[in-house]
Design a protein around this nucleic acid. Structure first.
Lengths: 156, 156
DNA sequence: CTAACTCCTGTAGTGGCTACAGGAGCAAGC
DNA sequence: GCTTGCTCCTGTAGCCACTACAGGAGTTAG
């Protein structure tokens, strides 16, 4: 049995985050010592580590919850997991695509911008009227089609 | 002069978001009608549009605020703008790199996962002990080096 | 004059944490 | 036994950039 500090070290999950996970019910409440401190069994630490790895892969908590319940009742598990993973992969691909288009737009904007000039062509371009019609609206439309809002961005 | 609804249409900024921008002080408080409604002049709408475009490019509000104050006092504007834009470009690049590594990791994990299997190799792998040492830790280390946390992810 | 619409303020919720404040348990050294 | 310093406890508030209400008031078309 380990206190929360050791559990944090071994799982790689921040102490505050462990308590947060307990609060939102993604990991079960651990036992307590006589003095009221949380005590973690090795398998509870394994669960925390699992959650961290899934977060590292960019999965949202809600999906991880599904993963965890799937591991409890191990009936036709793998198909669902694969489906969720592939859906997540699609989202990652969309995100990479969006960022790549953004990168391109920003690059061409900042390229017009020479150091030392007083009036800034980049800011000018962003202030102008007929800007969205050109290049940016293109990527905007692409994004809106697929509606990829939920900022998942992996933890560091 | 336009009411908030028209201003929203013309700028592409959601009504609630306009009021939010006013509340946090990124755009100035507009005038009011006799009945207490916000009235926007064309240049205020232009400012809103500028903010939206910057958000579309993924700039955080704080940077946009800098942009706006730079346009007020137009002294050595362009150099600073370019620097901020290039810094943002670097962040985008890092994010694309992270997502690409993630994609790879997730792809190889889900590849091991055949539909219909009861026990899931992917979940197994994530539960296992010596997992972080292999491929995931690589990308983890890369991320930690550069410390890119602030989830910026462009609006749709 | 009324129905439908737009707008107002203020507050709370989203995700996934992180950062306190103010206290209590616990281990080691004196 | 007592102090020092560490870890832990609960509860709450903050982060970002919005979004979503509730409950009311102004406005406009028929």
């Amino acid at each position: 049995m380990f206190t929360i500090g050791k559990a944090s070290e071994q799982s790689g999950v921040n102490i505050e985050t462990i308590r947060y996970y307990e609060r939102i019910g993604i990991v079960p409440k651990p036992g307590r010592s006589a003095g009221g401190r949380r005590l973690y069994a090795p398998d509870e630490i394994a669960k925390l580590r699992f959650v961290r790895r899934c977060r590292d892969l960019g999965f949202p908590i809600s999906i991880i919850q599904t993963f965890l319940s799937l591991t409890e009742q191990d009936e036709r598990t793998c198909g669902e997991v694969k489906a969720l993973a592939e859906n997540h992969l699609d989202e990652i691909d969309t995100k990479i695509g969006t960022l790549t288009r953004l990168r391109k737009a920003l690059l061409s904007l900042s390229a017009s911008c020479d150091d030392g000039t007083a009036a800034c062509p980049m800011l000018d371009a962003l202030m102008k009227d007929g800007f969205d019609e050109d290049s940016a609206e293109q990527s905007k439309a692409d994004i809106d089609e697929t509606t990829v809002n939920e900022s998942f961005v992996p933890r560091t």
